[in-house]
Design a binder for these strands. Structure first.
Length: 218
DNA sequence: AAAACGGGGGC
DNA sequence: GCCCCAGTTTT
């Protein structure tokens, strides 16, 4: 697959996207690009439905929107605020630890460096890249399960490891597509190029796709 | 009722 | 590599 193919594909996908619901990180980004709120929203969104994450964000941010005040909330308070999301106990603990670390080591600021972000508890490569791109508007590649699945399905990358997918995309994908790639592929993956039974007959880029791992299609 | 599903951490 | 973390949607 050549660069010109990717160019054509994202153009085709972009046309479809306007009719689809925006992913939660996009919604949060429109409401606030504050890196701390982006970070917390991304943490809450892990393995959790969009509308559930939105609910939890609303409840939590009504109590506190910065590391200092959020760090003063008790664990039960945090758990109650974010309760609807999956893994709420783990996430509540991680939020406390993150607030403490930001206060102690980063003067209450969220770092914009990828390696620094990765030292925060509960922050992996996907979350860290979201903070860099949405919170700071810097180039980054966020590989979630959709980006991973679709990149492999196309044959653009070939690996079972999402971290490896990120490396390959960094090497192959033209930098002007880095940030938007995730924005395009997430709604595309949620609505059309689904994990099971993708709607290949309606797909605008099916001619480019090698359908690796596709077992059925409608 | 069972499986799939939005990552990350600890070992 | 393997297992745990929790709630919702799909099959």
């Amino acid at each position: 697959m050549r660069d010109s193919d990717i160019h054509a594909m994202v153009r085709l996908i972009q046309k479809e996207i306007t009719q689809w619901k925006e992913p939660i990180v996009g919604v949060v980004a429109n409401q606030s690009r504050d890196p701390f709120q982006v970070l917390i929203a991304c943490l809450l969104s892990l393995r959790t439905q969009d509308h559930t994450t939105a609910q939890a964000c609303q409840r939590l941010f009504s109590l506190a929107t910065d590391p200092t005040s959020m760090g003063q909330l008790s664990l039960p308070q945090l758990e109650r605020a974010i309760y609807p999301v999956g893994f709420y106990r783990t996430k509540a603990k991680q939020i406390r630890l993150i607030c403490q670390k930001l206060i102690a080591e980063y003067n209450t600021d969220v770092p914009c460096d990828l390696e620094d972000l990765l030292t925060l508890p509960g922050v992996g490569r996907k979350t860290a890249n979201l903070v860099v791109t949405i919170g700071y508007g810097k180039p980054g590649i966020c590989v979630d399960i959709h980006v991973h699945r679709i990149s492999n399905r196309w044959g653009y990358v070939k690996t079972r490891n999402p971290d490896e997918t990120e490396k390959v995309l960094r090497a192959k994908l033209p930098p002007r597509y880095w940030i938007r790639f995730n924005d395009w592929l997430v709604p595309f993956g949620q609505n059309l190029c689904r994990p099971l039974s993708p709607h290949c007959s309606q797909c605008p880029v099916s001619e480019y796709c090698s359908r690796i791992g596709v077992t059925s299609s409608r």
